[in-house]
Amino acid sequence: MSLKPNLKLIAANAVLFGSLLAALACAPTPAHAERLKDLASIGGVRQNQLSGYGLVVGLDGTGDQTTQTPFTVQAIMSMLQQKGVSLPAGTQLQLKNVAAVMVTTSLPAFAQPGQNIDVTVSSMGNAKSLRGGTLLMTPLQGADGQVYAMAQGNVLVGGAGAAAGGASTQVNQLAVGRISAGATVERAVASSLGADNQIKLELNSADFATASRVVEAVNDKFGPGIATALDGRVIRVRVPSSSDQRVSFLGILENMDVKPAEAAAKVILNARTGSIVMNRAVTLDTCAISHGNLSVTIGADTQVSQPPAGSRGATAITQNPSVSVKKDAGKVIMLNGGASLAEVVKAMNAIGATPQDLLSILQALKAAGSLRAELEII
């Protein structure tokens, strides 16, 4: 029995495998069911942003230059006065181990006093690094001006830096750090969850078909009349009056599987980076696309004319402008009506279009009415 490979069999298998991959790539993607918690959120269950102004001390000479950051000096003097330390009038503080910072965090939904949350500490002045510093007690306020948490602790900076002999190197950002469990919640946000024995489900994206499917799925599981669609985004759901039963009901509700409606055809263009993203619902009407490069070069040939020796003439400088136009060979691609995203991308690659060229091509297709998609430029 020969152990040599059968080259014809291998080639046939390779062709069969390639055809299978092509068929799978062209096959329509079935709509998968998603959990309701991934499609919608419960009205009123949200985070709240908090921020505060504080001081980081204990830096190794990498703090703010107080001559250029007067707010750091003012904060230090105010803190010392609160601690009972009086400074003589006209005192000029020259500190290098202190930095003024902004402390930010998000207060989770249903957070209660005594719970700990993480905070981010960011330099406000010209501090070189917050590495090794300690954040002093900082009140964190909400949009209403009320204090909801107090932050304090050692700042952890993920970067590193070194300098010697005029040379320096730095890895990552040194002016921003984080304190794990660095803030303690002092005030809870009032919640109206379940008021009037009802909640509101808010879809992440407004879609009447998806809202209708959610209402149908909820009513099929819990009974008719439990869910009612108010519009294409908000769905009102009746919940039990008991808090224990309500929590159990919402847990089951969030983990229900719902098949969302097909997403609307959309093309996102980023004019700054040239990136383009299209979903699989994007199609084209019958159209022809032409692509060619036209380059215009304008130059000037400078010539110097010297007068003969002994003459009274002056040196003359003249410029002879030159203009040249070069046009590369263009290509025309014909696309039949109903072309899919794969055919669109294949056609664009065939004519050698760059992302910047695609920006203009897609805009022209939209203006001509051939692009069956919403065009959004960011």
Rank of each mutant, 00 (worst) to 15 (best):
P321M: 11
S322E: 08
V323K: 10
V323Y: 11
S324Q: 10
S324N: 10
V325W: 02
K326F: 10
K327S: 09
K327D: 00
K327W: 00
K327H: 06
K327T: 08
D328C: 04
A329P: 02
G330C: 04
G330P: 02
K331E: 12
K331P: 03
K331D: 08
K331H: 11
K331L: 12
V332D: 10
V332M: 12
V332H: 08
I333Y: 09
I333M: 12
N336A: 15
N336Q: 15
N336C: 06
G337T: 15
G338W: 11
A339H: 01
S340P: 01
L341R: 14
L341Y: 10
A342C: 01
E343S: 07
V344G: 01
V344H: 02
V344I: 15
V345T: 11
K346A: 14
A347S: 15
A347R: 02
M348G: 09
A350V: 09
A353T: 00
P355I: 05
P355F: 03
D357G: 03
D357H: 02
L358I: 00
L359A: 02
L359E: 06
S360T: 13
S360V: 14
I361Q: 06
I361C: 07
L362I: 01
L362M: 06
L362V: 02
A364V: 03
L365C: 06
L365M: 15
K366S: 13
A368P: 00
A368V: 07
S370G: 12
S370E: 14
S370R: 14
R372Q: 12
R372W: 00
R372H: 13
A373Y: 00
A373I: 04
E376D: 07
E376A: 04
E376V: 09
E376L: 10
